[in-house]
Design a protein around this nucleic acid. Structure first.
Lengths: 126, 126
DNA sequence: CTATCATCCGTACGGATCTACGGATCTACG
DNA sequence: CGTAGATCCGTAGATCCGTACGGATGATAG
């Protein structure tokens, strides 16, 4: 055998079939996770938060707002820009960033506007 | 100066202040992103989907359902288990996994139940 | 036209993460 | 007991990712 090829017959065939029928394809899952990976970084996530509430900010101001150095912000923006999540507008020597108009709405609503709560109430609802 | 220390005065102080006041702390952001990182992986995400719809599955069945090898699934589960997102129940020589009872509800509702759509409609609605 | 500022780009380094493999456990079965 | 199945664990190698740095670019001011 090549690798771990055990388990020829399911323990619970019904559940396997049920799961399989509702599972996103590996392809869809990959697309989704590459999107999630983009926001799964403190700097990038906070950049997105900042842009979400402030419409438009330049790199330096973003760094100020986040309390991060400009290298980090610049790199974060590079990634977000490359993936099309943010757009730029250049005015003189300043580059302004904003969320792309086609920024995934569910991502914005759910992740940006509600997900912070997650970190606070997994077991403690206070 | 040590590093990139430019930009002494904001270009747009108001927006900086506004963003800053609404920004999650680096700490909250880090907590959230480490959670997001857990689901930002195709294997783990699909494991969670499968467990979400099938209540309980053992490693081998999970591998069957995902069409992945058991090593991948086992490693994915190891990570999820370590982080407390899934629980195990042992019955004979089979180990069953399920979502932890305190699995973050918003994560479940938003990410697992709605987020796949994201990958389909950013610009192309078919 | 030169100095300076805001920002981008390429690169190199270090650490985290995933994969793959071999072996250890524990259970069931005869 | 001894064997086979299901799963876990440790580890080594490959790969990905974020950070930091130096220099390039383009724009403004003098």
């Amino acid at each position: 055998m090549t690798a771990t090829a055990a388990h020829a017959h399911p323990v619970d065939p019904e559940r396997v079939a049920h799961a399989r029928s509702r599972l996103p394809s590996l392809d869809d899952a990959s697309r989704l996770t590459s999107l999630l990976s983009l926001i799964a970084d403190p700097v990038r996530l906070r950049i997105l938060y900042a842009l979400d509430v402030s419409e438009e900010l330049c790199v330096g101001d973003l760094a100020l707002a986040l309390g991060a150095n400009e290298d980090q912000v610049s790199y974060g923006l590079r990634v977000l820009r490359t993936s099309g999540l943010v757009l730029t507008r250049k005015d003189g020597r300043v580059v302004f960033y904003r969320l792309a108009p086609d920024f995934p709405a569910p991502l914005r609503e759910h992740c940006l506007q509600q997900l912070v709560d997650i970190t606070r109430g997994p077991a403690a609802q206070d």
